[in-house]
Design a protein around this nucleic acid. Structure first.
Lengths: 249, 249
DNA sequence: TTCTTATTGTCTCAATTTGTTACAATAATA
DNA sequence: TATTATTGTAACAAATTGAGACAATAAGAA
């Protein structure tokens, strides 16, 4: 019943050789910080989403293109954080395993088996409005809690760790919460995002005071959840890009 | 008298195509923060030092190799800070101008005229123990004060600006001063480095108090300069890599 | 209606950190 | 022995952060 596969892998003509990108896509489900991890067909190999750069394409655009394909979202918050360039990070064996198990016909000196330098980005997206789609090579793509990841292939674990490190550093400078929460949220929601990213509990009153002191939020109506207690206000972010020097955590 | 040049440019066989590095090399002359800028023969083009990555070489090693060639130093403090990947940053015309004015014979589809992605690093070196050497393509290499740079070719000015931005951010986290000063220095020396990097004056007593509170310095003998005033202590850094969370500026 | 409960918004006061000024302790030199 | 410029530290004020207290709810239960 099954036909012989004759698929062609990405072409050398179209893409810059030796160059790839990888993306750590963060989402927040209301409780935990998660990232998208894909699994390749019949290999048991887990990886973060990556791709190649077209010969006449900005790297930023290549990453956006990949994210669009997998999440359906455009206008995603993206941050380039490191380029991984050791020789040892590349693994021809791993690439071969992936391609073979996807039914590709590839010769031994195919460009995908070469050494690759990877430019790594992290993305922040609103968990709720995404239905992740696996790409052609992948079996599945799923959210995994940041502290419960499957073993990742090659150096992908190191990439994720470095992404998280950078995300934590940028928590001070950029408005991280804006990209991980819906437009309106409670102060507790925001605090939970901060705690999930930092991996530690914060003091409620201090957090609230500091966030409010920054004057980056607009207060809206109250949210009545049905809980037997005072209803919290809803907030939204005032500005897209204030960049203040103040700390809030 | 002069012979016809028949030099060969770097070979496509040896290097990864489309991939380069650029380095912003910071030094401190006791007063100002400076960087190394080179000028290409007969072109009036100024650039920061860069190079290519061998096919079987870690990118970090490629940068170290380039730095060693130009400064004679190994064991240089290096920090990768960004990868520049827009299509528009590359300029075949500029490359052609440089190669032609160096007497190279290159065909029109030479690999150096292709689009390049550049991984950018900054380095911190001790100004005093360096005698910069121009490379084969360059006329000269000289120190320029960070606020008095010549016009730089292509996007090199943006690379320098981003390097400085990153250096300022890392002033908190890493022991920047260690790499820009001699082994022993006065508190005033250290403050001057901080001021040169930040581009602003700091309050003497607060600076001294905060630095001392971090307990990263060892106090040595006094330094008698011959000035008609109290002699300052000399200090050195205690540890290579403490990484404290405290701020000191 | 009136309790009870959990949560929220805000206030207060203590502890810590930072900003600012003051001042004594030098190294030369006059 | 004065004079001068600079350095190391102390002292106090101002600002920020930590830690608790507490009144104001929004339900549901009594």
């Amino acid at each position: 019943m099954s036909t012989r596969k004759l698929k062609q892998p990405p072409s050398n003509e179209e893409f810059i050789p030796h160059l790839a990108y990888d993306s750590v896509i963060f989402g927040f489900n209301g409780k935990q910080l998660k990232i998208l991890v894909l699994e390749y067909h019949n290999t048991g190999l887990f990886a973060i989403p990556g791709g190649f750069v077209k010969r006449n394409e900005d790297i930023n655009d290549a990453v956006k293109r990949g994210l669009k394909e997998r999440t359906g979202l455009s206008d995603i918050y993206l941050e380039q954080f490191h380029t991984f360039g050791s020789v040892s990070r590349s693994s021809a064996e791993t690439m071969r395993e992936i391609l073979i198990n996807n039914g590709y016909e590839v010769h031994n000196d195919h460009w995908l088996f070469d050494r690759f330098v990877s430019i790594a980005y992290y993305a922040l997206i609103n968990y709720e409005d995404v239905q992740p789609r696996p790409d052609e090579l992948s079996d599945s793509i799923n959210w995994y809690a940041i502290d419960d990841l499957p073993p990742l292939m090659m150096d992908h674990r190191a990439i994720v760790d470095k992404a998280l490190e950078n995300l934590r550093e940028n928590l001070d400078k950029k408005l991280i919460g804006m990209n991980l929460l819906p437009a309106k949220f409670t102060m507790k929601d925001l605090q939970t995002v901060y705690e999930a990213i930092l991996g530690e509990k914060l003091r409620r009153t201090t957090f609230q005071r500091k966030i409010l002191a920054r004057e980056i939020l607009i207060r809206h109506e109250k949210l009545f959840t049905g809980g037997a207690h005072k209803a919290p206000y809803l907030y939204s972010f005032k500005d897209k890009n204030p960049i203040k020097g103040k700390k809030y955590a």
